[in-house]
Nucleic acid binder design. Structure first.
Lengths: 245, 245
DNA sequence: CGCCCAATTGAGCTTCCTCAAAGCTCGTGG
DNA sequence: CCACGAGCTTTGAGGAAGCTCAATTGGGCG
């Protein structure tokens, strides 16, 4: 897809030099496609690949040995996936394709060179992890402290916000390629209760559903209140970064 | 305490050069003490400080506007705290002292120099974030998919494992300086239900409680099964790292 | 047209929550 | 040294949210 997509992501925080651009381009030399439903890797399997999503939706999940599943996060264009393999021998989470998708397999040597030759990019990657951590914190609070309605609303708002990042013209309407079972696995609910919850949201005119999994957020403000959703102002103090090379 | 404690943490993954040691030492030039109960920073306040814990316990939490609270994580010696301020203007989480404690306030310029002059340390810091992310994933699965008993058991096992890192002689017995309300905020339960849950764990001879908040884990294997707890083998492939300087 | 998978709906039940009232413990001041 | 609080823990009773099981409907696809 045109530009290198990690560069696209990091470029939100600082404008990149030509040398930095080409270093990032060197990461993404091994594109791969997966079909909807494909498993990129399973849990507790030896894993060493790291991916960047260029197209489509994926998700990461943990499986409990009794068969219950928790979907940890959804992944979109620009997301780094599987980076836990830098610290663990076996994969912590499974990675699956929600839609047909495309990823770049990261070249580790090139990643190493990024830290070595482009300290500013290394620091930016570190910063990007912070954004991710904050998202996980919000999800943790949602699962721990919100009602079913709040959790589903938060999921919808999160996805909406994420899609809007890539395409600011999206305005409350989007296709959600998740079954109710998967929504349940993401929010810690059962599929049945997701169904009832979404009906309740619909009846309260907070959302509207149409065929093809399309969701329309009718009142984002009220939805945000239900979800305890906080819009976080990213703000980046580029001053502390090492200089570009 | 004696050694620089971030060095202690990173040293678990790779042995550090003298130059690296002194670069890390330059981070920690501003020690600060807090009393039990102190608030290092509140949510949604402008924040720019980053801390490393050298002594004591702290926690990070999110507050919902209805007053409910989610404790995101507990923090121990060696933990990096407040690093979200690298990406956000306002603090995402509040940071509070659970016990009297001591932290080092990180010098940002020195952090920048670490990325610039010691790429291997930059990469190691990145790796350390992965460990943290995996812990958050496990907690997410615990809140989303475990019963009250499982969540409390998971919390105890997690704390135990963390303490054991610092002191391998700890064997199932430790002081837990948390009120039941705080345990509830960490596990997404009410204080009342935490009480009943811990009684149940006690009656099933999984744990034992004594005065002074002391907990004894009586059967770690069975507890781990209840908690769906996974011991993750950290494994670190130092081969990919840039060379030390 | 028939099948399969997802969505929907109903009924009954379990887990966890809320509200309320004691009990305990430990630090403080008299 | 003791009495008194304040805060934490414990226990009870009743209620609500979400779960399980089971049946039915609906839609897309071979």
């Amino acid at each position: 897809m045109g530009e290198n997509c990690l560069a696209e992501m990091l470029g939100r925080y600082a404008s990149l030099s030509a040398a930095e651009h080409s270093a990032l381009a060197a990461l993404e030399v091994n594109a791969r496609k997966y079909r909807k439903g494909a498993v990129l890797r399973s849990e507790r399997q030896p894993a060493d690949e790291i991916f960047i999503v260029t197209k489509g939706w994926l998700f990461c999940s943990l499986l409990l040995e009794d068969g219950r599943r928790q979907i940890i996060r959804l992944n979109f264009r620009g997301d780094l996936l599987g980076s836990d393999s830098l610290a663990f021998k076996d994969a912590a989470d499974a990675i699956c394709a929600l839609t047909d998708c495309e990823v770049e397999v990261i070249d580790r040597a090139a990643l190493s060179r990024i830290f070595a030759d482009h300290p500013r990019l290394g620091a930016l990657l570190f910063v990007l992890q912070q954004v991710d951590r904050v998202m996980m914190m919000d999800r943790l609070a949602s699962l721990g402290r919100s009602s079913a309605k709040g959790r589903v609303a938060a999921l919808l708002l999160w996805v909406h916000g994420r899609l809007k990042l890539a395409d600011p013209t999206i305005d409350g309407v989007f296709a959600l390629p998740l079954t109710q079972e998967e929504i349940g696995d993401a929010t810690g609910l059962t599929a049945v209760h997701v169904n009832r919850t979404m009906r309740a949201l619909t009846e309260q005119k907070l959302i509207e559903r149409a065929g093809n999994n399309t969701v329309r957020l009718l009142d984002i403000g009220r939805l945000a209140r239900v979800a305890h959703y906080v819009e976080r102002r990213e703000s980046f103090d580029t001053a502390w970064l090492p200089p570009a090379r």
